[in-house]
């Protein structure tokens, strides 16, 4: 026993960086929605950035630590506390056994990531621990976490000399959450034109780039439906299905848009209007129903430059985190 769920959250599941290589069989990659934040939580916990974390939505699960663990939280701020004492995100925290971790308010963002040093021991399928909710496999028995589930850590580490009977210890360094993606405005998403961008009439193109869109209640890990002004196409040709991807913005027959997210289907037959650039997909993952967004057109060069910048930033953070943890444990 290591970690026990005391109260069921609304949709909490084990996710890593995704399951790739099987989309030809219709197996969608799943994985974390906000890859950037999950990577940071993992790095703070001394893990590989792509390792499995627990992705939490609000209201989130309540966890009981049955063994001590070094954890880190990244992504949304859900006002985390250990045994009633607030604990910060983006710091490594060593939690003693018999401690309760809970989340009391959705202060900012949509999803938070709990990483545990050494990793979570859960079902691997086709090379990934991500929970595939549809195929009901991977992660914790292929399903979301429920009350009384017990998770095991891959390794158990003795933290007694650091804890000295304290309930938890926050280690004295943190990382900055800045996403280094060329636009820190959390509601602005850079896009590239999709194959059917030119199907839109001129007014719809202008609307797409100037209007603000609202994320509707019909939004989940599969995709976000956007409400507001319908867009119109000049071409009514039927499209045969072809591959879509995380961040693809499709136009539904009723003129509304849908942004495909982590659990998106592998192929689709609706016009592909645009694609959210990779460097902004993580930011999009922190949006929730009611949030407003703006699209801004960019080009391939810029999209790639921003992705590179973000990846290099993550590599630097990873080096810094590894260095601080090594130094702390070897002093």
């Amino acid at each position: 026993m290591s970690l026990r769920i005391i109260k069921t959250g609304v949709l909490d599941s084990i996710q890593d960086a995704g399951r790739f290589g099987w989309q030809f069989q219709g197996v969608n990659p799943t994985g974390v929605m906000d890859r950037f934040s999950a990577s940071i939580a993992n790095m703070l916990a001394g893990n590989n950035p792509d390792a499995a974390t627990i992705e939490l939505h609000f209201p989130a699960s309540v966890f009981l630590f049955e063994r001590p663990a070094l954890i880190a939280l990244g992504g949304a701020d859900f006002a985390a506390s250990v045994n009633g004492e607030p604990v910060p995100s983006l710091h490594p925290i060593i939690v003693n056994k018999d401690s309760l971790l809970l989340f009391s308010a959705p202060l900012h963002g949509a999803r938070t990531y709990l990483a545990i040093k050494g990793g979570i021991d859960s079902d691997e399928w086709l090379g990934s621990q991500s929970t595939h909710l549809q195929a009901m496999i991977g992660g914790y028995h292929g399903r979301r976490l429920h009350k009384n589930d017990q998770l095991f850590f891959k390794i158990n580490i003795d933290y007694s000399s650091i804890l000295q009977n304290k309930e938890f210890v926050v280690l004295p360094w943190k990382v900055d959450q800045a996403r280094e993606n060329g636009s820190e405005n959390s509601n602005e998403l850079f896009v590239l034109p999709g194959r059917e961008w030119d199907w839109l009439d001129e007014k719809s193109k202008a609307d797409f780039l100037s209007a603000s869109f609202t994320i509707s209640q019909q939004s989940d890990r599969m995709g976000y439906r956007l409400n507001d002004i319908p867009l119109h196409v000049v071409n009514s040709e039927d499209l045969v299905s072809s591959a879509v991807s995380f961040g693809t913005v499709q136009l539904l027959p009723n003129g509304q848009l849908i942004i495909l997210m982590a659990d998106h289907q592998t192929t689709g037959g609706y016009p592909k209007i645009a694609h959210i650039i990779s460097a902004h997909q993580s930011k999009a993952a922190q949006l929730k129903a009611g949030d407003k967004i703006h699209f801004r057109m960019t080009d391939q060069q810029t999209a790639e430059r921003l992705l590179l910048k973000q990846q290099l930033h993550l590599l630097q953070l990873q080096n810094a985190c590894t260095f601080r943890l090594d130094e702390f444990f070897n002093k």
Binding site: F20, G21, W22, Q23, F24, S242, L307, L308
Partner: peptide
Amino acid sequence: MIEAIPAYSSLSIFYNPFIVK
């Protein structure tokens, strides 16, 4: 290249831009 997805009349290739760059 990460993977390829065949469809009716298209083949899509997913790649890691970081590695390619």
